[in-house]
Design a protein around this nucleic acid. Structure first.
Length: 426
DNA sequence: TCTGGGGTCCTAGGACCC
DNA sequence: TCTGGGGTCCTAGGACCC
């Protein structure tokens, strides 16, 4: 059996943890740049506030209903996420836990006897809630996809389920599938849902009865077939316990406000490049390819929001590297190539791909001495920044005025990771 | 004025090779 | 009039997820 454990309204729960007075008050958390809503408390959901709603459009409504609004505080959420995962790891072996996202983990319960399942699930839930203060939901079933469905249903009916649901018999599975609309299935997005709609395939139960060949041809080839098997209870997506090296690392952001000059755009790109380089070094990787993109601002935007078109270019690096100043140097050249006088830009990003293990880190006998020194410098920069926690050491090209910096007007404190922002009790 | 950011996996089709 | 076929590698882009 497999399980998914998932933190309820995670970002909102984190904010509430340090502000108990907000219990029973509607709370929402905004995306970067205070752009749109990415987490809602139950009370906020009840008010009808939609996921991803643009903040500026719903702001009057939020004010009217006394909704508490926060900018996203990733230092806080990241730390609490780590605590939740570590708590689970005190109950299950590490190789049975796949951390799937900041607020979710898949669990392999293959070693748990059938009659023990309920008890173990309950123990995990109670321990996490007691030790971290974050409420969680757990769904259990023979496959990951079915466990996701179980989790979904558990949350839909919190009072009855106590946020736990175990689908351990064919009858329970069938009943759950019948209650699940196709668009709520993990792996069925908007496009697929639209196709299924036309065929009158409405529930997960209907989908489970589709022929394999149809799935192959219409729902993404092998992806569709895999989904079908998962719904049928045949595990086709395994538990991936290892933290593997990522295949891509990036840092991309919308500017606080649109930019028309090359200089501040270069500063922003240099900053993104150095962020992304830090991420590279954190997983002991170096990049072979660096892409830079900018997104021109669409001056007249229709009523329907459509994705923005990036202008991209990339460079194959002569030698894979994670050294910030080398990467910045190339990034700035690419930015100059992309920039067009007279155009207004609203976003940019740096993406590293074709990552390889950073051999200079382990010490490469044949590497020139200068490389070592650079790598050591990088380690020092990383260490200083990590301990000082506020980008004390920066590269000059990243600029000091930050005209492009994102908006975060409603930021809460980093209670758990900065001594200076510790919660005080009076 | 104001609509996030960071990922993965897969497919189709072109280029190239023998 | 007739002009192969199969394999591999690469890239761009679609779809999806949290």
């Amino acid at each position: 059996m497999k399980a998914i454990i998932d933190c309820n309204n995670f970002y909102c729960s984190c904010e509430r943890l340090f502000k108990p007075r907000l219990k029973n008050t509607p709370v929402v958390v905004l995306s970067n740049n205070d752009g749109c809503i990415i987490s809602r408390s139950d009370e906020a959901k009840k008010l009808g506030i939609k996921m991803a709603a643009p903040y500026f459009m719903v702001k009057p409504f939020l004010e009217k209903h006394g909704v508490q609004v926060f900018s996203s505080n990733y230092a806080l959420y990241g730390d609490l996420s780590k605590r939740v995962m570590e708590t689970v790891a005190t109950i299950l072996p590490q190789n049975c836990i796949e951390v799937y996202s900041v607020d979710e983990a898949f669990l392999d319960l293959g070693h748990v006897a059938a009659k023990e399942l309920h008890r173990v699930v309950q123990q995990i839930k109670e321990t996490v809630e007691l030790w971290t203060g974050i409420a969680v939901s757990i769904g259990v079933a023979p496959t990951k996809t079915l466990a996701k469905i179980a989790n979904h249903l558990a949350k839909d009916n919190k009072e009855k389920s106590n946020c736990m649901l175990v689908l351990d018999t064919p009858g329970r599975i069938a009943a759950a599938l019948k209650r699940t609309p196709v668009e709520e299935i993990w792996g069925v997005g908007r496009q697929s849902a639209a196709k299924l709609e036309k065929l009158d395939v409405k529930t997960a139960y209907d989908l489970k009865l589709m022929p394999e060949e149809w799935m192959r041809q219409n729902l993404g080839g092998v992806v569709g077939v895999r989904l079908l098997h998962e719904l049928q209870g045949k595990p086709s997506i395994g538990i991936d316990e290892q933290l593997s090296i990522k295949k891509m690392v990036s840092c991309t952001r919308r500017f606080g406000h649109a930019l028309t000059e090359l200089q501040p755009i270069k500063e922003a790109v240099a900053t993104y490049a150095s962020r992304a380089a830090e991420k590279l070094r954190r997983q002991y990787a170096a990049a072979k390819v660096m892409s830079v993109f900018v997104i021109p601002k669409e001056l007249k935007r229709g009523s329907i929001y459509k994705p923005l078109e990036p202008v991209t270019t990339h460079i194959k690096l002569p030698v894979p590297t994670s050294i910030t100043n080398e990467l910045i140097k190339h990034a700035l050249v690419l930015t100059e190539q992309l920039f067009e006088e007279g155009t207004t830009y609203e976003k940019a990003g740096v993406i590293f791909t074709e990552l390889v293990p950073d051999s200079s880190l382990q010490g490469n006998f044949f590497a020139p001495q200068a490389k070592y020194e650079q790598r050591n410098l990088m380690s020092m920069v990383d260490n200083v920044n990590f301990s000082m926690r506020n980008e004390k050491v920066k590269f000059a090209s990243a600029g000091t005025k930050k005209l492009w910096k994102m908006k975060q007007e409603l930021l809460s404190k980093r209670y758990t990771t900065r001594w200076g922002e510790l919660r005080e009790i009076n």
